[in-house]
Design a protein around this nucleic acid. Structure first.
Lengths: 233, 233
DNA sequence: AAGTGGTCTAGACCACCTC
DNA sequence: AGGTGGTCTAGACCACTTG
């Protein structure tokens, strides 16, 4: 009557969510078919579908063709993180960005690296270690392995001036990736290269990227002390 | 001709994405209107819309009513993390879950806690410190503050047997939250309560939840050494 | 003021999976 | 084999926001 958007998908979503929260529909229960909910709420099935997709993406319900919609019995907190390009992150904070390549070698990928890609056969890769600087101080140290079978051209690129990441983003974009986060005590090498105390707690961001089935690169980014990641919204 | 689903939204999405990757449309550029893309691709505008929403949620393009669609000039890696309920996480790994309340007090929220909620006025809150155990060993230690103005009933709940989180999930669900991740060296107190070496690098997961504008709770979860978070897909 | 994306509808067909 | 969610279409109207 007075509501703007009486049958908006957000309202439908919230009404369904409310019934889950008030235990009308309990974890593990099966919800009615979209069509029946649509009829009850007096809206189109596609509106219910839109609402359900949101609940499904939030991890609140699970949907399967023919199997219907069920309330997830193991609710999770599903957070979205934006991991920025380091140069833009530094500049956005008003800092002066710097990049410095530390080492470069071509070698067999060690087992830990191959495992990130799910590879069993030995693989020749380009390894690049580099430092990202903010106002001249170490900000992130990265240890990167690039698959030379997928990205042979990278062997010819001058990575002392341009970060491997920026070259890859432009020339070998990925369409699939995985991120792994954990804490790590600064090793003696970390401490020396980043100018900090040995043992300092550092957040590590590991990222592995593929283009379809082809491995592209895996990076272990060691952040400076105090670095934080914050979820969107 | 031979493709199944010739005009699927995924195909439309991938074709648009391909043009961004091959720099037909460069970062900062404005894309054609959905309707024009639909005409070019020979599909409905709603199919383009579906494709665009996916690109927008992935952080590849930005869309504004009247302002059109533009390619993001600061590409990010947008990762989704599932942070499970600790009890279910332990049980899923085949461990025996245990819970132990350490301390409970009612106090003014310190500035750091109030800041998480964006509060300026002093607030009385319930503070609960507790330990989650896996096979009898400390798994996660949590330091939680609960807003007594929003959730007065919690003061009467017996939190020695039931974790505050499980009570809250059932009785005061949130609809908005923020997560913050960082690394931290175990303090002497951390070390004593979790049975580990002082200075160990620990991943901290801070979570603050609201119901609309009302603060519910903020938790600082200190994970055990070696704990990892991995993105979905 | 007008043009863009956002939403809603009704209907059709499809794909997947459980029954 | 049949029922469920998933997708696509065509059309209409709305909301936002920018020129």
């Amino acid at each position: 009557m007075s509501d703007p958007q009486r049958h908006s998908w957000r309202e439908v979503r919230d009404r369904i969510h409310a019934r889950i929260l008030d235990r009308t529909w309990k974890p593990g229960d099966k919800l009615p078919r979209d069509e029946d909910i649509a009829e009850e709420f007096g809206c189109a099935r596609s509106t219910v579908h839109r609402a359900m997709r949101d609940l499904s993406e939030s991890g609140i319900v699970e949907r399967r063709r023919r199997g219907g919609t069920t309330v997830r019995s193991d609710p999770v907190t599903r957070a979205t993180l934006d991991i920025p390009i380091t140069r833009l992150e530094v500049e956005a904070r008003g800092g002066r960005y710097g990049y410095q390549m530390l080492r470069r070698e071509i070698a067999e990928a060690p087992p830990a690296v191959a495992a990130n890609f799910g590879l069993t056969a030995p693989h020749r890769m380009l390894r690049v270690e580099a430092l990202h600087l903010a106002d001249g101080r170490p900000y992130i140290r990265e240890d990167r392995w690039i698959d030379l079978e997928t990205v042979p051209e990278i062997a010819e690129v001058d990575l002392t001036r341009q970060s491997a990441n920026e070259w890859l983003v432009r020339n070998r974009p990925y369409n699939r990736f995985q991120v792994r986060l954990y804490a790590h005590n600064a090793s003696a090498a970390d401490a020396a290269e980043m100018g900090l105390a040995e043992g300092a707690a550092l957040l590590i961001i590991e990222r592995t990227t593929w283009n379809g089935a082809d491995p592209i690169t895996t990076v272990r980014a060691t952040t400076h002390p105090g670095y934080q990641l914050v979820s969107r919204d």
